[in-house]
Design a binder for these strands. Structure first.
Lengths: 230, 230
DNA sequence: CTTGACATCGAACGTTTGTTCGTGTATGAT
DNA sequence: ATCATACACGAACAAACGTTCGATGTCAAG
């Protein structure tokens, strides 16, 4: 057969693809024999030969004399596999519904089992402050243009934590019963009244004299806007 | 010693924490002996005993007679470890600077080596359409209130792909030389002129008669807003 | 035509590794 | 006091596993 050009040959690519697939599906790497079985390589020494080359080319790292001691460093697509991309570094938040102006936020009850949800949105842990807990979060999709003053578009995903009391400066979802309206605003309790400050600095705040009329339903921790057709 | 209440004992927790830590650091799970060595359990059968219990409680899954055949299902914090949280499912985009109204977008040159960047933002692959490539993306942090009409706040992270030509309906960063201004708008080329449509539906578009005056610098694929103090 | 590099392979070996067994202690229930 | 269960442990064993060796084939360069 023709000599290998510098770079990946067919067998390299097959092995690399299999490594990614196996690790994704199983949560641990394959053995030398499993790699061979799935790439039509009948000899463990040939698999070893190719793994050594993938290591030289910085696609993987190997630990000597360790079973399944293969760590992906770079994918076939060229993306670095960051050590930070670990089990605890990404999590799913269930998208449990829509947020619209005319209805209260559908805050899940505390015993709601999110994990049955098929729809969720994946979030890198590093997008939240280290002290923020990742449990109990839920996400809502914005429907309509009613949250413009919060700088939030139709279709945006708002990730929230259920709270019933807010601290000053936090962006919260509040239900204003006398207006039949949910709104997203920065919350300030000052001099016995509530100031709900829009994110858009060109808009004026809502002043609520009776704080009891403000039902805080959740605190916004993240907003994600995906571009349609991007 | 006292009988175990239903739920996790001290040794369960130590083992679970070690599993998370080892997998994060090594890219593959530990062996029974490595678990024992790091949790002060001198016997492989005791480690086996506890792993079986963790499996019963749905924290892990095990493959019989497979070395390092342990798959984390749930972390100590209670988060599900999703199969989607795999090597290729999260990646980093370098945050290479700021986007401000008065300067062109600092589009990186095509041979820029992002991976040396220490600052990056982690993004779940699932936030982008499946056909969107993850290479070549870069991120900018918005500085100032000048992108309000794009519904983008000071401090938001805008993830972009360098392009010099846009398709209709895509949100792009364009540099308007005659105005000395960068703006984020939805791009439409129609009847020989360019319509730059703000994201805020209450604002009017910019009409540019001479399309040559519109320098498309990048296409927005994602916007992320983290809440300060969240 | 010869040589060296690369690729391929089976076999053997020793180490790594998980499972099983038997034993002992402590505790709560009867 | 007895029994059942949980917890703890060392030892032994066999299978899983990675590495090494020697052999063979192909191809490009000289």
């Amino acid at each position: 057969m023709a000599r290998r050009k510098a770079g990946l040959g067919e067998r390299h690519k097959k092995i690399l693809k299999f490594l990614e697939k196996f690790q994704t599906e199983n949560g641990y790497p394959p053995s030398i024999r499993e790699i061979g079985e799935n790439t039509n390589i009948s000899s463990t020494s040939v698999v070893n030969y190719y793994l050594n080359q993938l290591e030289e080319m910085n696609f993987i790292e190997r630990e000597s004399n360790v079973s399944r001691g293969i760590r992906l460093v770079k994918t076939l697509e060229g993306n670095l596999v960051n050590a930070a991309q670990a089990i605890t570094e990404m999590f799913s938040v269930p998208v449990i519904g829509r947020i619209v102006a005319g209805e209260p936020v559908p805050v899940p009850s505390s015993d709601f089992n999110y994990y049955d949800q098929e729809t969720g949105i994946d979030i890198a842990r590093s997008l939240l402050p280290p002290r923020e807990k990742t449990s109990d979060l839920f996400a809502l999709e914005v429907q309509g243009d009613s949250m413009i003053d919060a700088m939030v578009n139709d279709g945006d995903i708002v990730v929230m934590r259920p709270v019933s009391q807010a601290n000053n400066g936090e962006m919260v979802a509040v239900w204003l019963a006398d207006r039949d309206e949910t709104t997203l605003k920065y919350f300030y309790l000052e001099d016995g009244h509530v100031r709900l400050q829009p994110a858009n600095p060109q808009m004026k705040p809502i002043i609520i004299d009776n704080p009891a009329q403000v039902q805080v339903q959740g605190k916004v921790v993240l907003v994600i806007r995906r571009m349609e057709g991007a």
